[in-house]
Nucleic acid binder design. Sequence first.
DNA 1: GGCATAATTAACCTATAGGTTAAATACATC
DNA 2: GATGTATTTAACCTATAGGTTAATTATGCC
Lengths: 124, 124
Amino acid sequence: MISDRLSVTFAALADPTRRAILARLMSGEASVTQLAAPFEISMPAISKHLKVLERAGLIARGHEAQWRPCRLKAGPLKDVADWAEHYRRYWTESFDRLDNSLREVQNREKKHGYGKHGEKRKRA
Amino acid sequence: MISDRLSVTFAALADPTRRAILARLMSGEASVTQLAAPFEISMPAISKHLKVLERAGLIARGHEAQWRPCRLKAGPLKDVADWAEHYRRYWTESFDRLDNSLREVQNREKKHGYGKHGEKRKRA
DNA sequence: GGCATAATTAACCTATAGGTTAAATACATC
DNA sequence: GATGTATTTAACCTATAGGTTAATTATGCC
């Protein structure tokens, strides 16, 4: 029953079919049939994906005769970008190197490490 | 059975508890017990969340006596930021306005619109 | 060795995600 | 109003997510 906006957005993006649909919509609006074309799954499955995207506010739907064209609404993606930006300093190479060398010094006289001991827990 | 990196990353981020754990790790490494403290869920539940984050490459785990301290590995978040950046021009206000006014002109003589007709499909 | 602490694993439960096929709805056209 | 096309809804299935409690593993300390 998670319903916060970011969770809904991330959940919607956690599917390659849905991300492909968003990518397709960058080049303009499209009907459901057009969106379904590249995929091997059924129309109802596409319909469900579109509903997920719509509920996440990532697409808007039109209404023209029997067509329900979709177009991109990228607003929530700004939230995603903004959220990720908070972590920028943690993914830069310089930070990683600093972090690692600091950690090596700190752990010089302890007998543990990252990753190395983790290996032995591997199973199956 | 989705296993592409971005999907795994987004799925890991689609949970507020896990995002809170990542936020906590910005201020330094922490033991499982420390990470669990702010939440009302059980330790095994936290353990599972950490496993999800670890498999997504978002945290690394250490090994010190009976503690398994976690620390942030933000690499995948750069992929998220990069992915979202592709959509930047679609979320900027100027683009939205241009898009909307173009669309209004285009649809002047058609009898459909976005959102308005969508309302009537509401049910429950 | 025995006890306390930290964390994981096992076994289980329920809800939801993502897919299916078949039926229903909406609209345009003849 | 019957037919064809676009799309959704209904009913169903299976796998997974996220949670639980109880048991197990790993370690430090006495």
